[in-house]
Design a protein around this nucleic acid. Structure first.
Lengths: 343, 343
DNA sequence: TCATCTTTCCAAAGCGCTTTGGATTTGACT
DNA sequence: AGTCAAATCCAAAGCGCTTTGGAAAGATGA
């Protein structure tokens, strides 16, 4: 059923039917009701493509997910973020279109999306330090919003980020308060902006407590369970092992715990662990009492909010880009405790 | 830059330019080259919407992800599956449209996608027993392919599935071979088709070994780490605890291991564990030697293949629906060993 | 040289919608 | 009854592409 058929069926012009359906005032209430009823019974919905052509809008937002072909790793937070954003799009009648793209092809993809007028805007995932995508999108004039930030880009742009720096500073402070001084950091890949900021927060706390940064206590890599395990095992085997570990992801925290327990140590007693927790739906940090002490911030919520921000900026293109910094909450669980006393 | 401008620029008609770009034969090689060069320099790409309107194709595939609003759980395999499918779409010039939908709204969403002619076909995720979506999509006449199967639907339809039954039967057999007889099953939600099939495979092996199914050794729920942990803890605390556990997901297997080790037992010695492993990129089953003995099947690969299947069926609408059953491979890791001798 | 194919290109219609600019009807008010 | 504005509705243009049905030009064979 298309507009023409529907209007013929109603004995009205396409104009009137279109206006009735889109809430324009030039239609009598009676007619509008009649039209709406007919639309419902015939299950009429305007063709996305025709509507888009006529209005010049795509009513779609693009999500371009970078994937380094090297490790083929899909970011585990991706699903929950998308779920949050999807909620927002659904409410606003937008569609979400997804491109999973090899690192190298990204430029081409953004240009394609723009040239083909396939989307009204895009969300940028996984920003890196000095990420070239921000500049590219600005040049293209394609509205966008970034999940995270990209240090090193001079001009303002729309983003939403967790305050990674303060979260990790606070977490490190917390460990100091418990008496720990040898605190390790198992972080995400250095080139990722969030990892950079977390390290800064960590280093800042160390500095405030007059403890020098010890390179042997800092790791960075892709945050898998195995990675957490291996880093921890190595650190615990060497002399002068850390008494506390800061970890960038709950998944690798599971590996950290495994390494600790494998060595016959007790987490929260012999070794304390604090992790960041994205509150993923399939990876909850325990039940009532959190297993891990964690800096927590829901990535799904971030998805909802960032989508909202992008849609708002599309609706009002002249407004300056917005930013939003979410504070992670520190949840104390059973993975932390006072530093063991020296023998 | 649009077609009109481009063709004016070249001194050709829109027809000729369109034909040159779309590989029609009625264009001289010289002209074609000239057109292609111009398209490249002006970065011309036909508008998706206009092209779609003209051709009647959407060049897009819909993925409708169900999410029960009750637990708000996003399936963790989703990201990797999408990544695989996305690869295929990219190769074929298709777009992927994602809708994350509350269980109840699904019908409405499919009808909307169809009525608005927004997609050429859809992938059905997470089929349940007697899943009503299959019938609905058949009635709508919207091409589709299912990731998994939906027992109870009479007519043929396109699907791709892992042979869950044989995988779990084989895994159970394997445990019997090691001397285990008290084998527990920690499974996904019973209403999910895959969980049903896995239980069948498990039960079939028990029957073949003249062991009665013991309801106290079977659990089903959402496959989180915590769920694996709690099920295992309960089972190990009761008398007559299982000596082996079959688990439906690597994530909950991590919880299983935690419960085992917390009790001071050794996995692979006191309690053997076999899990299904979807080969998720962010959750690898150890390095060279798998940690868990597992029935393994790459869900990303499934995404690639199923997308290919759907595109083929769209290209050739009259062909009968295809099916593909993937066999999981049994990878022996260090989580299994001979059954402990009775004291 | 002429008729007949090929080759190469084009004008215009059409895809399904929105929207502009008018036309018609209705109603209120002198 | 006559006037004017408000309320309703409509025909047609246009969004950017593909595709149909020719037309013009060039090549071929008699």
């Amino acid at each position: 059923m298309n507009l023409k058929e529907l209007s013929k069926n109603l004995g009205l012009s396409q104009t009137t039917v279109s206006r009735a359906l889109n809430g324009y005032p030039e239609v009598s209430p009676a007619t509008r009701q009649r039209v709406e009823a007919a639309a419902k019974t015939f299950n009429y919905r305007p063709s996305t493509r025709a509507k888009g052509l006529a209005t010049g809008q795509a009513l779609a937002i693009g999500h371009v997910i970078p994937m380094s072909s090297k490790h083929e790793m899909v970011n585990p937070i991706f699903g929950d973020f998308i779920a949050g954003a999807g909620e927002t799009y659904f409410r606003h009648g937008y569609e979400m279109i997804l491109s999973i793209v090899d690192d190298g092809d990204e430029k081409q993809i953004y240009e394609g999306l723009k040239a083909r007028r396939a989307v009204d805007g895009v969300i940028v995932h996984g920003p890196r330090m000095n990420d070239p995508r921000i500049g590219l999108l600005n040049d293209l004039g394609l509205p966008f919003a970034v999940h995270g930030r990209a240090s090193g880009y001079g001009h303002p742009y729309a983003w939403l980020d967790v305050n990674n720096r303060s979260a990790f500073e606070r977490a490190t402070d917390f460990l100091f308060d418990l008496g720990h001084t040898r605190i390790a950091l198992i972080n995400g890949l250095e080139e990722m902006d969030f990892a950079h900021r977390r390290r800064e927060g960590y280093a800042s706390s160390l500095a405030a407590h007059d403890i020098a940064v010890d390179a042997s206590l800092m790791r960075s890599g892709e945050m898998t369970e195995v990675y957490g395990y291996e880093c921890t095992r190595e650190m615990l085997e060497k002399g002068n092992a850390p008494t506390a570990i800061l970890c960038s992801s709950l998944i690798s925290a599971l590996g950290v715990r495994r390494a600790i327990e494998e060595k016959g140590l007790v987490m929260g007693k012999d070794v304390s662990v604090v992790t960041h927790d994205d509150a993923l739906s399939y990876l909850q940090n325990g039940g009532d009492v959190p297993i891990f002490t964690a800096t927590r911030s829901s990535v799904r919520d971030a998805g909802r909010k960032l989508a909202e921000m992008l849609l708002a900026s599309i609706a009002d293109p002249l407004s300056p880009p917005k930013q939003e910094l979410l504070e992670a909450e520190l949840m104390v669980g059973s993975s932390t405790g006072p530093a063991p006393r020296k023998d």
